[in-house]
Design a protein around this nucleic acid. Structure first.
Length: 187
DNA sequence: GGTAGGATGGGCT
DNA sequence: GCCCATCCTACCC
């Protein structure tokens, strides 16, 4: 079943934890979320939203259940899902996926064979899924690009620790992953 | 097993 | 002009 608006219209940390195990589907390609990070809004120095409302962060201030995609390091894209009510700019960075469907397509897009290398990082997974700026602002509660609950168990407990690659609020334990899962970016 | 450095361009001060 | 929510390669234990 496709996750509806109410799933995302909750505190960002809850959404970040509950997204673990859910499946992102885009066309013929799908992957199970095994690692996320919460960016909790204007008071979070590491969050883009802490700079306020700009052309780039507009989607974050909009309604929940939409994709926030941005371009980073001149080469990569990162995928986030907007949480909390309109006007409250929380979002969840998707950091790693376990490939579920369209694995041949992912291998071709990534140019690597190893299953664990296809989507085990925020920049890798957008390449594997074919996500770029065209998907910024997309509604993920309907259409070709959705997030689904297929009822599969997590296969491990939820671990928490500091977020990766940031320089502010470095000690906040807002990174969540499935303990022991071989597809996370860092165990 | 590990890490240092470079690629590469948009956003914001 | 500086700062990135990254990844890959080269090189070193």
């Amino acid at each position: 079943m496709i996750l509806g608006r109410s799933f995302y219209d909750r505190p960002t940390v809850e959404v970040a934890r509950d997204l673990l195990g859910k499946v992102i589907v885009l066309g013929a390609v799908a992957g199970r979320i095994v690692e996320t990070e919460a960016y909790v809004g204007m008071h979070d120095g590491a969050a883009h939203a802490s700079r306020g409302l700009t052309a780039r962060t507009r989607v974050l201030f909009g309604p929940p259940g939409h994709a926030y995609v941005y371009f980073i390091y001149g080469m990569y894209h990162c995928l986030n899902l907007v949480a909390e009510a309109e006007g409250s700019p929380g979002c969840v960075l998707i950091r790693a996926l376990e490939p579920v469907r369209g694995i041949g397509i992912m291998r071709r897009r990534r140019g690597v064979e190893r299953l664990e290398a296809l989507a085990s990082g925020p920049g890798k997974l957008t390449v594997a899924m074919g996500i770029d700026l065209r998907w910024n602002g997309a509604d993920v509660t309907e259409g070709r690009f959705t997030v689904r609950d297929d009822g599969m168990p997590l296969g491990g407990s939820i671990a928490a620790g500091p977020r990766i690659g940031i320089r502010k609020a470095v000690d906040w334990p807002l990174r969540f992953w499935v303990q022991g899962n071989r597809f996370v970016s860092r165990g």
